[in-house]
C-alpha cells in the first residue's frame, strides 16, 4: 500500500489539465447523466495527451470532478501498478498536485479500467469507469440513429436476442464481461468491460459511479443507491463467476481471481485481481501469524 501526499502542480497547466470551460461542460453532462441514470449523455470529448483506448473518457471525467483535497486511486484490471494506472496517477499528480493512493478505503476518487474494488465503497467516494463502447445494443444494431430510438422507446427485445444467442450456442449465458444491466427498470446500460462478477456491486452501491467514453463522446452515471439488475431469462438466471481455487497469495475465496502462468510446464496459480485487497489480506495474515 502506498500513498503519496499532495504536492505543488506543474504551473504550466490549469488545475487537472483541462481548462475551466471544458470542465464546466463535462460537469453539466455529468449532472444530466446523474439525473437520468443509465442514459448516455453526449459530450464534447477533448483531445487528451494520450491515445484513445487508454482511458481518455475516464480521465476527462476525473479531471472535471477533482478538487485539490481529493485522494486519487487508479486501477487497471484491479491492479494499481500497471503502466496505464501508474501513468494516469502521474498525470494528475503533475497537473493537479493531488494526493494519490492505492488504498481503496482512503481514496475519494477511484478511476478504474474494467474492475470494481472488492472492498465495499462508501458515500464519500466516486468511482470513475473508463468505457470503450458505451452502446450495449451496438453488437446487433450498428445504426446509432436506431439504437437511440430503441433506448427512447424502451424497445429492448434485441438485448435478449444477444443472450438468447449465447445460450443457443453455449448452453448457458457465456457473456462474462460487459454484461448488460437494466438501470432503475428503465435504461439498458453497458457496465463497461468489467467482469459480470462486479455487476452485483453496482446495484445499490453507496458510491457515485460515473462512466466516461472518450472516443465515443458519451457520459453516463449511476447515482448512489441505484437499482441495477443484470438481464437474464427465467430459466437461465444471472450468475457470477465462481472458482474452485482460492487466491494463492492471500487465500481469499470470494474475490475475482486472475490466472497466472508461472512456467512453461503448465504451472499456474490464481491470485486476486484486486492487488490492494490482496496485499491488505496478506498483511493481515502475517500479523495474525506473528
Amino acid at each position: 500500500m502506498s500513498t503519496e501526499p499532495a504536492s505543488v502542480p506543474d504551473p504550466g497547466y490549469n488545475f487537472a489539465y483541462l481548462n475551466e470551460q471544458t470542465k464546466k461542460m463535462i460537469r453539466r453532462a455529468l449532472l444530466k447523466a446523474i439525473a437520468i441514470p443509465g442514459y448516455q449523455v453526449p459530450f464534447a470529448s477533448r483531445e487528451m495527451p494520450m491515445p484513445y483506448g487508454w482511458g481518455t473518457g475516464g480521465v476527462q471525467v476525473t479531471a472535471s470532478i477533482l478538487t485539490p483535497d481529493d485522494v486519487l486511486k487508479v486501477i487497471d484490471q484491479g491492479a494499481d501498478d500497471t503502466t496505464n494506472a501508474v501513468s494516469i496517477r502521474k498525470f494528475f499528480r503533475r497537473t493537479a498536485g493531488i494526493a494519490t493512493t492505492s488504498d481503496t478505503e482512503t481514496a475519494t476518487v477511484i478511476q478504474t479500467r474494467h474492475r470494481i474494488p472488492e472492498e465495499p465503497l462508501s458515500e464519500s467516494q466516486i468511482l470513475v469507469f473508463q468505457v470503450p463502447i458505451p452502446e450495449p445494443l451496438r453488437f446487433l444494431e450498428p445504426r446509432e440513429t436506431e439504437t437511440r430510438k430503441m433506448h427512447a422507446y424502451e424497445d429492448y427485445g434485441l438485448m435478449h436476442v444477444k443472450l438468447y444467442e449465447d445460450i443457443s450456442q453455449n448452453g448457458h449465458i457465456a457473456t462474462t464481461y460487459a454484461y448488460p444491466v437494466r438501470v432503475e427498470g428503465r435504461y439498458v446500460m453497458d457496465p463497461s468491460p468489467t467482469p459480470k462478477f462486479d455487476n452485483p456491486k453496482m446495484d445499490n452501491c453507496e458510491a457515485l459511479q460515473l462512466f466516461g467514453a472518450g472516443r465515443e463522446k458519451r457520459i453516463y452515471a449511476l447515482p448512489p443507491y441505484t437499482r441495477v439488475v443484470s438481464l437474464d431469462f427465467e430459466d437461465h438466471p444471472f450468475e457470477i463467476q465462481k472458482w474452485t481455487e482460492k487466491c494463492s497469495l492471500c487465500g481469499a475465496d470470494d474475490s475475482f481471481l486472475d490466472e497466472v502462468i508461472t512456467d512453461d510446464k503448465g504451472g499456474r496459480m490464481f491470485v486476486c485481481s484486486d492487488t490492494d485487497f490482496c496485499s491488505k489480506r496478506q498483511i493481515g495474515r502475517q500479523e495474525a501469524a506473528e
Binding site: 427485445g157 431469462f233 427465467e234
Partner: peptide, 11 residues
C-alpha cells in the same frame, strides 16, 4: 426477437 420484445422471459 418479437417474442422477447413482447416480454417473453423464458428461454
Amino acid at each position: 426477437e418479437r417474442l422477447m420484445a413482447n416480454q417473453w422471459q423464458h428461454y
